[in-house]
């Protein structure tokens, strides 16, 4: 029952908590590009790969009471914090859905900023191109983010790390 919902729930469970909608979007995308079988469809948007399907699914999980969403006020913006609820834990106990082990990848992604994950996910979006073409494309579509060569270098290393981790 609700296989795709259960996969997202497993992600939240492994994450303990996720802070930020943009970060959530990019984390699932990066995992998907690392071969984790999430089915949410992504398209390229102003801030990089984005899945409306994922947004809706998370809203459903909130409305069902399987995850909690807390809106927090930061200095000059709001952010959202997500955690699995007790009812969500019960739902997961009944689910037979299996996901590969993703704990380590989640850990390293949580340590990074959403700006950095936006860069990584954008690079992965163009992974059918050569390394040089990817970097050129990032500079075109993310001109205003002013990513440096060092940012790119770190992002390549991060992608390698994520792909190798189990």
């Amino acid at each position: 029952m609700l296989t795709n919902h259960a996969k997202i729930m497993k992600f939240f469970k492994a994450s303990e908590e996720v802070v930020g909608r943009k970060k959530l979007q990019k984390m699932i995308y990066i995992l998907k590009k690392c071969g984790v079988p999430f089915e949410e469809k992504y398209e390229f948007h102003f801030y990089g790969p984005y899945s409306e399907e994922l947004t809706l699914r998370v809203e459903e999980l909130c409305n069902l009471g399987f995850i909690s969403e807390v809106k927090e006020k930061e200095k000059n913006y709001y952010q959202y914090r997500y955690q699995v609820t007790e009812q969500g834990e019960e739902f997961l106990q009944h689910s037979i859905v299996e996901l590969p082990v993703i704990d380590e990848r989640i850990k390293v992604m949580k340590e990074r900023s959403s700006r950095f994950l936006e860069l990584v996910s954008t690079m992965l979006y163009f992974d059918h191109l050569s390394k040089q073409e990817v970097e050129e494309k990032v500079q075109i579509v993310k001109k205003k983010q002013n990513y440096t060569e060092q940012d790119m270098k770190e992002a390549w290393a991060f992608i390698e790390e994520c792909k190798q981790k189990q």
């Binding site: 919902h5 909608r21 801030y47 409306e52 809706l56 699914r57 459903e60 959202y80 959403s114």
Partner: peptide
């Protein structure tokens, strides 16, 4: 078969509070 609203994604207006959408 259980059918959910997210099975037919349709983009409601998003104010993009956290920069997820413009």
């Amino acid at each position: 078969v259980i059918d959910s609203s997210s099975d037919l994604p349709y983009d409601f207006y998003r104010p993009g509070e956290e920069g997820e959408r413009l």
